[in-house]
């Protein structure tokens, strides 16, 4: 079950990482919102489906679309928001548990954990690929330009 405050923690952790990654200060809250949003999607979905990969993939799609929207409005590459937004999902915990299993001598559990860690990373990558393609199809950039109210857009970003 997701605690009610979990998205908040996820957002604040994202803000910390965004600051460490030298993101411009006024972009930090925006990126943090992406991290919170991703967790708010991933945690309940994982509880409901029992599948980490599904949950993370869906969350990555949401983070990716959020990042593309921000990118269009702020005229910055989406990847700066993506790199921060996926931080709460990124499988650091999985790597830790993998290591722990090996240290405790449970090689098979370690292997299983390692695989699910890789699966989580793969699910995030697939979700981001989907959102990248979707945002190009739905031309989020145009919507962003309309929100921004500027007539000229930049070069299309893959």
């Amino acid at each position: 079950m997701m605690g009610p405050l979990e998205p908040l923690w996820a957002g604040l952790a994202t803000a910390g990482f965004a600051t460490m990654f030298n993101l411009r200060s006024r972009d930090v809250p925006l990126a943090a919102a992406g991290g919170a949003l991703g967790w708010a999607v991933a945690a309940p979905l994982q509880a409901a489906t029992g599948s980490q990969a599904t949950a993370y993939c869906a969350a990555a799609v949401v983070i990716g679309i959020w990042a593309e929207l921000l990118a269009a409005i702020q005229k910055r590459p989406a990847s700066v928001y993506i790199a921060c937004g996926i931080i709460p999902l990124v499988p650091g915990g999985g790597m830790y548990y993998t290591m722990l299993e090996y240290v405790r001598g449970n090689s098979w559990n370690g292997l299983a954990t390692a695989f699910s860690t890789l699966q989580a990373a793969g699910a995030i990558a697939v979700g981001l690929a989907v959102s990248g393609a979707a945002s190009r199809l739905l031309s989020l950039r145009k919507i962003g330009r309309r929100i921004r109210g500027s007539p000229r857009g930049g070069r299309t970003i893959r």
Binding site: A13, I87, G93, M95, Y96, L100, T117, A121, A125, R158
Partner: peptide, 27 residues
């Protein structure tokens, strides 16, 4: 201890690098 170590290790662990590796390959 688990939660504490994970939180602190998160700063070092290459989670983004793994994800970007897969993203590059997909691209």
């Amino acid at each position: 201890a688990d939660a504490t170590v994970i939180g602190a290790l998160m700063l070092l662990v290459p989670g983004i690098a793994v994800t970007n590796a897969i993203r590059d390959t997909i691209a």
